[in-house]
Design a protein around this nucleic acid. Structure first.
Length: 350
DNA sequence: AATTGTGTTGAG
DNA sequence: TCAACACAATTG
């Protein structure tokens, strides 16, 4: 039995990434700004120098009126929440309100239903199952959903499942053994798990199972691709951008793929399986398995690592854990924890 | 090259 | 705890 990764829904270790103050770094003192008046709105603003009225560029960003929302240089909005002197990044969003809403969700997860949030919720809204949903997921999972913009989807699916099961909570086995058909499998190549951050979908499979709007038609749309959701064995939803690359004449999964590679610790030769529910929902699934004949047993490695680190996790600061992880930076700590939880899946597979 | 989100600071 | 700001790391 491997009691490796705590689902820290309880409270202790944080498996999502938190910002950690570390290496002292000498930064130049901020230049004393003259009085500048903002003009217009949106991202990088043009300001008027009060002295001579000359237009100058300024990177002064517009503040948000929402709690936990910070401006991004490109006009988008970031969401963040603090806990234990550390910032937890909740992702970036196009709309200020979307960021604010994400903050709200995180706040209620981190601080309870009475947390101060941006948008008050009516009691009826609350019973959308959001609170219950928050309770059944760890902080790390919630943060992950917020960052990937999948929270609404997952909440909806959660509710749908409940509804369909007529009040009875379906056992995990039920969901796992749901009827599915295997679409295709692919042994990932080195470049699929490398720095290219993309998975090439073999043309035959791509065109058969994931037809793009118009294969070689209006480029603007096609090049942008589409977003596709896949559910993994843990019920986690992965959203990938799927598009066609003219340069290499290939179909690829891009945005989101690198996260999957990281979290599953995919290596070249490992096999990724794509499945689809035979039911009416046509839900897509993604699964993976380690290349057979893989030399080291990753389960033991991880278990051993965790056994060492768990002491640090509970008693030390993030960086100590990072060090124990082998010098990985704090932003990777979440992976570390997530990886652990996923190894349980490996155990099931092996 | 563009964007993210981390490092860091100082105010509350 | 919090947001502002700068900019290195990451992503496309």
């Amino acid at each position: 039995m491997v009691s490796c990764c705590i689902d820290e829904s309880s409270s202790t270790s944080e498996s999502f990434s938190t910002t950690t103050a570390t290496a002292a770094k000498f930064s130049a003192p901020p230049p004393p700004p003259l009085r500048l008046y903002r003009m217009g709105s949106g991202g990088s603003s043009v300001v008027l120098d009060s002295e001579n009225g000359v237009e100058t560029e300024s990177r002064k960003l517009p503040s948000s009126k929402y709690k936990g929302v910070v401006p991004q240089p490109n006009g988008r909005w970031g969401a963040q929440i603090y806990e234990k002197h550390q910032r937890v990044w909740l992702g970036t969003f196009n709309e200020e309100e979307e960021a604010a809403r994400s903050y709200d969700i995180a706040a209620r997860k981190f601080r309870g239903r009475d947390a101060v949030i941006n948008f008050k919720k009516s009691l009826s809204e609350d019973d959308n199952g959001e609170l219950a949903f928050l309770e059944t997921h760890s902080k790390a999972e919630i943060v992950d959903m917020l960052r990937k913009h999948t929270f609404a989807d997952e909440l909806e699916q959660n509710n749908k499942r409940r509804f369909l099961s007529n009040g009875k909570r379906p056992l995990q086995n039920d969901t796992v053994s749901r009827n599915r058909e295997v679409l295709f499998e692919k042994a990932v190549t080195p470049s699929d798990v490398g720095k290219l951050n993309r998975l090439v979908i073999p043309k035959q499979h791509a065109e058969k199972h994931f037809p793009l709007p118009s294969p070689l038609g209006p480029l603007p749309l096609v090049t942008k691709g589409v977003l596709i959701n896949f559910e993994d064995v843990n019920g986690k939803v992965w959203r990938f951008r799927y598009s066609y690359w003219n340069s290499s004449q290939s179909y690829v999964l891009t945005k989101g793929w690198s996260r999957f590679v990281k979290e599953k610790n995919l290596r070249a030769g490992d096999v990724v399986t794509f499945e689809r529910s035979t039911g009416p929902d046509r839900q897509l699934y993604i699964d993976w398995k380690i290349r057979s004949g893989s030399s080291n047993n990753p389960v033991q490695v991880v278990v051993r690592l965790f056994g060492v680190d768990i002491f640090n996790v509970t008693n030390a600061k993030t960086n100590d854990v990072v060090a124990a992880c082998g010098g990985k930076r704090s932003r990777d700590v979440d992976m570390f924890a997530l990886r652990c939880s996923k190894k349980q899946a490996i155990i099931n597979v092996l």
